[in-house]
Amino acid sequence: MHNLIAVFKKQCKDTFKNKTVFIQFILFPALTLLMNQTVKIEGMPKNFFVNLFATMYIGMAPLTCMAAVVAEEKENNTLRVLLLSNVKPHEFLGGVGSYIWLLCMLGAAVICAAGNYGLRTGLVFMAVTAVGILASLLIGAAIGTFSRTQMMATSIALPVMMFFSFLPMLSMFNETVAGIARFTYSEQIGKMLGQVPSLRLGMDSAGIVAVNMLVFAVLFAAAYQKCGLE
């Protein structure tokens, strides 16, 4: 726990210095605030932008940030020194993961605020988001572990992130895409966010998210087995 907190604190110091990662955290919350205020289309469902951007945020920011941070530490040999200093892999991943998770939750809170939810619905919104971010972190960790360099991590993370973030949006227009998107956690998280005002979340959605997370955990384990963290 001690080392995990140390890694967490180190990441905090890096927040404003690492611009490529930082921009990920604020882009979608800022965009949501902006669009929500300015764009009003006739017949648009309530909180259309809030749900859309929250889903994209969940699919993008944690995934790319986690992959980037882990891969960068591998590339610069900082992770090797850490492991030689008795920092356990789970302490490192936990420190980085909890930092990114918390930062994304802050961003999600901004998006949530734009949605004008009440206390209970707001909390449910944040709970769904929290699970979604966790799922993205798992894929991000798998990609970061698999990659030797930050460049490699980015080139893998980009298509993966596009797949999960854009699929829910595209599924609105195409039946076939919708058929595939059904099985992704991002689509289901988006769906659950839409159910937040009624406070009735579909159990099937939760199930699909859980299966997704299981698959990601297995992928991470495979990447860790194959490449380790050095």
Partner: peptide, 20 residues
Amino acid sequence: CFGLYDRLSVYDNLAFYADI
């Protein structure tokens, strides 16, 4: 290969390891 945190200051690099 030094394994230092490029964006952090000299002091912060050591402060992190003081923690560890």
